[in-house]
Amino acid sequence: MQPGSGEAHQHVGSVHAADAEQALQNARDVYARRGEGINIWVVPSDSITASTPEDMGPFFDPGNDKAYRHPQFYKVPRGVRL
């Protein structure tokens, strides 16, 4: 679901459907009843390749001790307004 113009789509949920058009209608009926968005993408679940819980360590842990990957050592030059 795209919450507003220019914003990135966000996952809002899943629906059962026989094909793409029905999935789109079901998503509209289930997730867009209260003005939640302006655009819907539906993707068949078998088209999604996902990491598994076992991947947690090798995928995400190595980032934790490499603080230099974050931008906090960069000093914002004077005159640049945030």
Binding site: H16, A17, Q25, N26, D29, R33
Partner: peptide, 9 residues
């Protein structure tokens, strides 16, 4: 369920 909501809508 999806059609239930669709009809209620």
């Amino acid at each position: 369920l999806e059609e239930d909501i669709a009809l209620a809508n």
